[in-house]
Write a protein that binds this DNA or RNA. Structure first.
Length: 287
DNA sequence: CTTTCTGTTAGAAA
DNA sequence: ATTTCTAACAGAAA
């Protein structure tokens, strides 16, 4: 579930907590989540220092001393929870319960820093992964797999129109395509379409320029507002302290099938399937 | 009980 | 070249 706003929240949390800390231990309980050989992975991480934390789309990039970059993808149910030595941190698989400490049964990889604080990688469904790469490999991955970032200054209307030209797919599929626009997942794709008043199943090449412009504005606005609310906790997502994000209170269509539309106060939100994904929209105010 | 569904995406199939 | 479908997994819901 973590999409751009959730990943951004985790990165900014971790930036305050682990930069300049040295990793002195790794426990790997599920080897299949590591995309290097275990020997290589451990060798390149142990005794290295965290120098920076960033992200591209939903991919977390932890820069280490030396030519090493730890890439972490949380996929659907992954969590990264940081805990000081001896503290009880909320969090876990479902909505965080205060009594739930780390590690839990889904804590598959655990990093320990020199001050004894720890970073837990939890993942119920085990879709997430970690890989350590060098600078060249990092740039290959970023260049080949990730499109424009909706929060950056180069996300201009011109670039957006450029990105939309000659696309024969639906706007929903396009918003979900990480190679075209990075970081949007199923929740925000539906919210963006609703905010823009466009049905998710509309074909991109049939949209008017005015509609494309609305989608551009809505993409920027929804993502920005969701970051401000520290993301959306629909089921598994928690921040680096194990706390929920509050944008769930601002969702207008996702998970609201059967409810009256908050925007037009007339339509009833329906749930259907578009681009192979559960898709929510208001048949009255989305055209 | 079994079947279907779920926030992602890489890779195969079309 | 693009777009669509499915598998990877575990658990909740139907």
């Amino acid at each position: 579930m973590p999409e751009l706003p959730e990943v951004e929240t985790i990165c900014s949390d971790l930036r305050k907590k682990i930069i300049n800390k040295r990793i002195i231990g790794i426990v790997i309980k599920k080897k299949n989540l590591i995309r290097n050989t275990i020997l290589q992975f451990k060798k390149r991480i142990i005794n290295s220092k965290v120098t920076n934390i960033s992200r591209r789309g939903k991919l977390i990039i932890i820069s280490l001393s030396g030519d090493n970059y730890l890439l972490i993808h949380l996929k659907m149910t992954g969590q990264l929870i940081y805990q000081q030595k001896g503290s009880i941190t909320a969090g876990g698989h479902s909505l965080p319960r205060p009594e739930q400490g780390m590690p839990n049964k889904y804590s598959h990889i655990i990093f320990t820093f020199s001050d004894k604080s720890q970073l837990f990688f939890n993942d119920m469904r085990q879709f997430g992964y970690m890989i350590i790469v060098n600078r060249d490999e990092l740039h290959n991955i970023l260049d080949n797999s990730y499109g424009i970032e909706p929060g950056l200054s180069n996300f201009t209307l011109d670039n957006w129109l450029d990105v939309l030209s000659n696309r024969k797919t639906t706007i929903k599929a396009l918003l979900l395509n990480q190679k075209i626009i990075a970081g949007i997942g199923n929740i925000y794709a539906d919210e963006i379409c609703h905010n823009a008043g466009i049905r998710p199943q509309r074909l991109v090449n049939k949209l008017t320029v005015s509609e494309k412009k609305r989608l551009w504005q809505s993409s920027k606005n929804i993502i920005k507002r969701a970051i401000k609310k520290r993301g959306t906790t629909f089921s598994d997502y928690v921040d680096a302290d194990g706390h929920s994000g509050s944008f769930v209170d601002h969702l207008r269509v996702f998970g609201r099938q059967g409810e009256k539309c908050n925007k037009c106060k007339v339509g009833i939100i329906i749930k259907t399937r578009v681009a192979g994904r559960g898709t929510h929209y208001c048949p009255n105010c989305q055209k």
